[in-house]
Lab assay of single mutants.
Amino acid sequence: NMTTNERRVIVPADPTLWSTDHVRQWLEWAVKEYGLPDVNILLFQNIDGKELCKMTKDDFQRLTPSYNADILLSHLHYLRE
């Protein structure tokens, strides 16, 4: 019986294949993992993996503070390698 913190996010390895639900799961995981403040996951609700991967730093900064944008982008970049 796992707690929420221990729950593994199971999403496709390639972020471009993510559904909007996968994006939400990834964001929820990242918020907990990195202790990100002020991430409004609802702002990302219509973004799927293909859109997420096209987003620039400016795009991320429209949805979340700069600090969060940096961490989310670097993790996304890591996943795409």
Rank of each mutant, 00 (worst) to 15 (best):
Q61P: 02
Y34C: 05
G35N: 10
P15I: 05
L17R: 13
D58C: 06
L52H: 01
R62W: 04
H75A: 11
L42Q: 12
L63C: 05
V31G: 06
I10W: 08
P65W: 07
T20S: 09
C53Y: 02
P65A: 13
V31L: 03
F60K: 00
L43I: 05
L17G: 14
Q45M: 08
N46S: 12
K54E: 14
W29A: 15
E81F: 03
L73P: 02
W18M: 02
K57N: 04
N5G: 11
W18V: 00
L52V: 03
E51A: 12
M2E: 05
L79F: 05
P37A: 12
N46I: 03
E6M: 13
R8F: 08
I47Y: 11
G49R: 01
W26T: 00
D14I: 01
R62P: 03
W29F: 07
W26C: 00
R62K: 12
N1K: 07
R8H: 07
Y67G: 14
L43F: 07
D48Y: 00
N1E: 10
K57L: 08
D59T: 14
A30Q: 11
W18I: 00
N46P: 04
P15G: 01
I10Y: 11
D21N: 07
L42K: 11
L72G: 00
P65Q: 04
P37V: 11
V23M: 00
T64S: 06
Q25A: 13
D38W: 03
H22P: 00
G49L: 01
L27Y: 02
L17M: 13
D58W: 06
D58H: 15
D14R: 01
Q45Y: 07
R8Y: 02
D38T: 09
N1M: 08
Y78E: 15
F44N: 09
K50Q: 11
D48I: 02
N40I: 03
N40A: 05
H77W: 06
E51Q: 11
E81L: 14
V31C: 07
Q45C: 04
T56K: 14
G49C: 01
V11N: 14
L17K: 14
D59G: 05
S74Q: 08
C53F: 04
D14H: 06
E28M: 11
Y78D: 15
S19P: 00
Q45R: 09
R24Y: 05
V39Y: 04
T16L: 14
R24V: 11
I41W: 06
P65G: 11
K50H: 07
D14Q: 03
I71N: 02
D59N: 04
F60V: 08
I47A: 02
P65K: 07
N5L: 14
T56L: 04
E51L: 06
T16P: 03
I41D: 06
M2P: 12
P12F: 02
P65I: 03
I71Q: 13
C53D: 03
L72C: 01
L76S: 02
P65V: 11
T3D: 09
E28P: 02
V23R: 00
T64A: 10
C53S: 06
L79I: 14
Y67P: 13
G35A: 13
I47E: 01
H22M: 10
R80D: 15
K50F: 13
Y67H: 13
Q45S: 11
L76M: 04
E51I: 03
P37G: 10
K32A: 07
W29R: 11
K54A: 07
M55Q: 00
Y67A: 12
P15T: 02
L76A: 03
K57I: 15
E6I: 12
L72A: 01
K32Y: 05
P65C: 13
D38C: 04
A13N: 14
T20V: 10
D21K: 06
I10C: 10
L36K: 02
V11D: 12
Y34L: 06
K50R: 10
V31F: 05
G35C: 09
T4W: 12
F60M: 15
E33S: 10
L42Y: 11
T56N: 08
M2W: 05
I10L: 09
E33T: 06
V39L: 14
V23H: 01
T20I: 07
Q25T: 11
D38P: 13
K54I: 03
I71K: 14
E28H: 12
M2D: 05
E51H: 07
S66L: 04
T64D: 13
S19E: 06
D70E: 14
T3R: 09
D59C: 13
N5R: 10
I47S: 01
W18C: 00
R7F: 09
A13F: 08
A30S: 07
D58P: 15
L17P: 00
M55F: 06
D70Y: 04
G49P: 01
M55S: 00
L73Y: 09
Q61K: 13
L43V: 08
R80L: 15
P37F: 06
L73K: 04
C53H: 02
L63D: 01
G35S: 12
W18G: 00
R80V: 09
L72P: 02
C53Q: 04
V9L: 14
N40W: 02
E51G: 12
Y78I: 13
I47L: 09
E33I: 05
Y34G: 04
S74C: 07
N40H: 04
H75E: 06
I10F: 09
R24L: 11
R7E: 14
Y34I: 05
L43Y: 08
Y67E: 13
L73S: 09
D14K: 01
T3C: 08
I41T: 10
A69I: 06
R24S: 11
W26N: 01
P15F: 04
K32H: 10
H22V: 05
T20H: 11
Y78W: 05
A30F: 03
A30G: 05
W18S: 01
Y67Q: 14
D70N: 06
L27A: 03
I41R: 05
T16N: 09
T16V: 13
I41S: 06
L43D: 11
Q25Y: 08
T3V: 08
L42H: 08
R8E: 14
D48M: 03
S19I: 01
V31E: 06
N46D: 12
Y78T: 15
T4S: 07
D14V: 01
T16M: 12
R24F: 05
Q45D: 08
K57S: 11
H22W: 02
L17N: 14
L79T: 12
T16W: 07
E6P: 13
P37I: 15
L63N: 02
S19R: 06
R24A: 10
V23I: 02
G35D: 14
R7K: 12
M2I: 06
A69G: 07
W29Q: 15
L52C: 00
L72S: 01
G35I: 11
E51Y: 10
K57F: 06
L43Q: 13
E28W: 06
F60Y: 03
C53E: 02
L42W: 10
L42N: 14
D14P: 00
H77Y: 04
W26Y: 12
A13Q: 15
L63G: 02
P15R: 01
E81S: 14
L52G: 01
